[in-house]
Simulated assay, not measured.
Amino acid sequence: MTLQAGSNRDLWRRLVITPVATGAMAAGLLAGAATAAAQPAEPTTTETPTAAAEDAPRSCTGDDCKRGEPEPAKVNADQVLMQIYTEYAQGDGGGQVSKLIDDAVNLRRQGFRPSNANAEALAAALEYRPHQTPLVEALRNTIAYQRKLKAQAALSASQQGPVAGPVPVIPGMTGSLG
């Protein structure tokens, strides 16, 4: 005759421990798969700097220092916005980036251009994709700057008074206009 009490306890342990262990193992596998890097670990270029270029002392003053060094490429804010807009143009159902880029482009169409710093931040944030947090932060900062410009424009327009100005009085005119 077999003892029934011991098998129930073992069955209960198997029913609880097996799913927990399986879940932990699956989470470990998923976490290991998520750490795959988007960039190669080593540079793919085979260029090596020459020893003469490294050893040559460089002394310069004023404009001489800037010779030979390429100017940093200026980022065009409109081009960066359009690039992001074409990639993420989904409308209201497209997610956070889609809504933010839609707001930024609408403000740009109203005449409120992002600053050069905003354009550089947007271009730099594109380098971090598929991670979208830097892009979301850059878009939020861009929209905040554009809204600040819009508020300043509205404030200056309200302080200037009416656009048409005073009504001219023409000699010989009789009657009221209103």
Rank of each mutant, 00 (worst) to 15 (best):
M1S: 04
T2L: 04
A5H: 07
A5V: 15
G6I: 15
S7H: 07
R9S: 03
W12Q: 02
R13A: 12
V16T: 10
V20R: 08
A24S: 09
M25V: 14
M25S: 11
M25C: 12
L29W: 12
L30N: 06
L30I: 11
A31G: 14
G32T: 11
G32R: 10
A33S: 12
A34V: 01
A37T: 02
A38F: 14
A38H: 11
P40S: 01
P40Y: 00
P40Q: 00
A41W: 00
A41E: 00
E42P: 04
P43W: 09
T44G: 01
T45L: 10
T45S: 12
T45E: 00
E47G: 03
E47Q: 04
P49L: 09
T50A: 13
T50H: 08
T50E: 11
A51S: 09
A52K: 06
A53P: 00
A56I: 00
P57A: 07
C60L: 04
G62M: 08
D63I: 09
G68S: 02
P70H: 08
P70S: 14
E71S: 13
E71K: 13
E71W: 04
E71P: 14
K74F: 13
K74T: 14
N76R: 09
N76Y: 03
A77W: 04
L81H: 04
Q83S: 08
Q83A: 12
T86P: 06
E87M: 03
A89R: 08
D92Y: 11
G93R: 02
G94H: 05
G94E: 12
G94L: 11
G95M: 08
Q96P: 01
K99H: 02
L100H: 03
V105L: 07
V105F: 07
G111K: 01
G111M: 06
F112R: 05
R113S: 12
R113E: 12
S115D: 03
A117E: 14
N118S: 10
A121V: 04
L122G: 03
L122N: 02
A123I: 05
A123L: 01
A124V: 11
A124N: 11
E127C: 08
Y128R: 06
Y128S: 13
R129F: 15
R129A: 00
P130L: 04
P130R: 07
T133W: 06
T133P: 02
P134Y: 01
L135S: 09
E137C: 03
A138T: 07
L139V: 02
R140W: 06
N141C: 05
R147K: 13
L149K: 10
L149V: 01
A151Q: 12
A151P: 07
Q152P: 02
Q152L: 15
Q152N: 11
A154G: 04
L155N: 13
S156D: 02
S158Y: 09
Q159Y: 00
Q159V: 10
Q159A: 12
Q160S: 04
Q160E: 12
Q160F: 14
Q160L: 13
P162W: 10
V163C: 06
V163H: 15
V163D: 12
V163Q: 06
A164F: 15
G165Y: 00
P166H: 15
V167Y: 02
V167I: 00
V169N: 13
V169H: 06
I170M: 13
P171H: 14
G172N: 04
G172T: 02
M173T: 08
